[in-house]
Design a protein around this nucleic acid. Structure first.
Lengths: 99, 99
DNA sequence: CCGAGCACTTTGCACCACAAAGTGCGGTAT
DNA sequence: ATACCGCACTTTGTGGTGCAAAGTGCTCGG
């Protein structure tokens, strides 16, 4: 098998954003506060990563006002597809590395 | 399962070095020229990554002079262990992301 | 001696992760 | 009404680093 490392999505393949994408993949929607609590990231950093993901078209943002203003985030179709592609590559790497 | 993204080894988790580590894992030794040809990296860049990996104790360097001077590279025990740990984390991410 | 190739080092640029501090807005308490 | 607090940002600053390009020394072949 031929691994093409150029195909690694730089947007996803960064520690912080990889963490975000992985979390987002497990649940339909996440509030900003929950993400922050789970990731133990500074909010500035978290927002920046979310914006990067948003600009790449991977993440959708929903703003609502319940009793408190609350923004929630989820993967777009495109984001899901990109993440699936990324995971497939990881799998190949794991297989190659262990085989 | 609880994923700890802080455990991601920054030395390994970079595109170029991840490629190098993956290649090194598949064969006992690689010549510099072979790595360069396979990775399509500039030699300066490749050397820098190899040095980083070397300083982390993950890669051993062997210099020999056959007809031409030739340097070859291989994983150390520590490198192999670190890479295995990294791959295990990748596996968890893949599982979490797909589950 | 000259040119080529290997294995570097050095330099420089540009990007980016990350933290810290500041902003605005709405709700809540006093 | 005002003061305060938390949420969701933006801005700023710094350090680190990937990467390319150019330069270095070394050895061999012609």
């Amino acid at each position: 098998m031929k691994l093409d490392f150029d195909k690694i999505d730089r947007v996803i393949h960064e520690r912080g954003r990889l963490a975000i994408m992985t979390l987002l993949a497990t649940r339909v929607r996440w509030s900003f506060a929950d993400l922050k609590a789970e990731l133990k990231m500074s909010d500035g950093n978290l927002v920046t990563h979310l914006r990067t993901l948003h600009q790449a078209g991977y993440v959708a943002t929903t703003k609502e006002i319940l009793d408190r203003p609350q923004t929630s985030y989820g993967l777009t179709e495109r984001g899901r597809a990109a993440f699936a592609g990324y995971l497939a590559l990881l799998e190949q790497i794991v297989k190659t590395g262990q085989g």
